[in-house]
Design a protein around this nucleic acid. Sequence first.
DNA 1: GACGATAGCCCTT
DNA 2: AAGGGCTATCGTC
Length: 159
Amino acid sequence: MIVDIFFSKVLNHYVEIEYGDALRSIRFVRIGKNLKQQISHKTSYEMMRYFEGEIVEFSSDVEIHHLSPFEQKVLEETRKIKYGKTLTYSELAGKIDSRAVRAVGNALGKNPLPIVIPCHRVVAKNGMGGYSLGVEMKIRLLELEKKAITFNISRMNER
DNA sequence: GACGATAGCCCTT
DNA sequence: AAGGGCTATCGTC
């Protein structure tokens, strides 16, 4: 088992990424008890670039087999949401042929791999909805992506 | 059975 | 127009 760690300026948090056979868990910690950066895995580099404002699609395999079938379906569907896009809880439910809108929210709350499984891109129909790591962080992530997208568009228009 | 990271309706100010 | 109460819905615990 490997644990990678680096500091994210935008979030003002350390990011701890645990690998087993595949990507196992991602956690954010505020205070580093003299944590030193340690990066050995491709996904960790991708995450660093993500936080720098690059438009990144994550490639790694993901360990979620310990979760219920429903939760796995929700998270797999969430994974398909493209960078900078958002979906509502009910739209996501519809995609997996369910009307359990609130159960979707509950499943997302158990997401062991935030960012890589972009649960911050699932929002309420009228408003932001919740986020297990605090709505503040959700907002910051969505803003990061919005900026990255508009920056990219303005670069395209330069030529 | 109760509880949600929901949503829609209906009522009041 | 904004906010509060009520209810349908359904997967977890």
